[in-house]
Design a protein around this nucleic acid. Sequence first.
DNA 1: ACCTGAACACCGTTCAAGT
DNA 2: ACCTGAACACCGTTCAAGT
Lengths: 222, 222
Amino acid sequence: MKKASRIVSHPGVAATPVGYHHGDLRNALVEAAVQILSEKGVSGLSLREVARRAGVSHAAPYHHFTDKEALITAVCDHGYGLLQKEMQKGHELGQVALDGVQNAGIAYARFAVDHPALFRLMYTWERVGEPSEEWTNATTAMNEGMVRGIMEVTGISLEEARMIHFTLWAAMHGLIMLWLDGQLKGIDRPLEEVAYDLTMLLGRIINWKDPTPSAAKAEGSG
Amino acid sequence: MKKASRIVSHPGVAATPVGYHHGDLRNALVEAAVQILSEKGVSGLSLREVARRAGVSHAAPYHHFTDKEALITAVCDHGYGLLQKEMQKGHELGQVALDGVQNAGIAYARFAVDHPALFRLMYTWERVGEPSEEWTNATTAMNEGMVRGIMEVTGISLEEARMIHFTLWAAMHGLIMLWLDGQLKGIDRPLEEVAYDLTMLLGRIINWKDPTPSAAKAEGSG
DNA sequence: ACCTGAACACCGTTCAAGT
DNA sequence: ACCTGAACACCGTTCAAGT
């Protein structure tokens, strides 16, 4: 009843993937972990459960990851990639430089709304390995682009632009964390809207006036 | 060798409290948990280890807490109390209203530096009970005081003052979280100093000029 | 090369039993 | 009322053994 090893493809069956281990167990494990996260949260993520979902023995993951820690690092890195892509999309969508910065910030918040447990894992797991070089490079480039944008539009110094950018990052990150922690139940608006307000307020530091209305300002949100 | 039950006081022996359970095991458990946190971090905090440190059987805690969750809620609440007191101290120390706000913000950061694992537990544990009423009330009062202070000094509206206060909170929280997560290793300055800079930058939103120099600006910091 | 099953030391939780 | 010891179902990790 558990012997479906030779059945290779059978695609489209998302519910119970039994014959998964056909050559890419590593990725199957990461995907199983992501699924568990979305269903049971961080506390439900055990190596044995991941193995079960992938249809292998509980010892099998050790042939692809040295550790539970290593699996989690891989899962986080998967998340970093998704987040990076979302933020990049938002950034590039902005016609004016500062719109791009705002969009990226709101994309950050939206990612947390879409993948709360994954976000939690990525930023609260007691230290895990560094993100992969690929992700680090892409993010660094994007951040530098944002800082440059802030600099060019406002004419402030590089150091100051960096500080502004950092403050935006910290504020967004804090907003999301407080939201994840249930500390924002006094506020009955969607997180993305609050994120939008935050960017607007921070914009005042550099005398940024009302921008071209971004997606987050549209009313109907849930 | 484990039968020191009748020895009641023996105060001052902080290292190995064997005959602890003399009437206040509940608090002894919370204290043991705090100690474990500072030594081994959140991942080292198990109910059985807590019981061991308190010198009781692993089943004993269940007579004082329904759950591991309940113990952790108590530990968090203990932490909330400590944090509240530190922030209050900083807040009251400020001669001018906005200095008090700044001091409270920096005290928030300092608390995270002093008790990183406890802070982590307080704000990243997958949802636990609400903080106790005592703490909630004190914090609410303090926050309202800060908002009022911002309002009075700057003459802005209540809503706007709330937003400023909230932004400061989010930025501080995010800064601390990123620091805890090791994402600030590019910055080689103490967290409190960065926190100070953040408050200064956010102060610009309300045209807050250079304040009376606060404690965090003093140079020697480690 | 890749996977399994048994084994070990942990963990949270329960429950009958002791004082 | 408060605590213990044994028991159960989990967990992470290792390791000999199988194909």
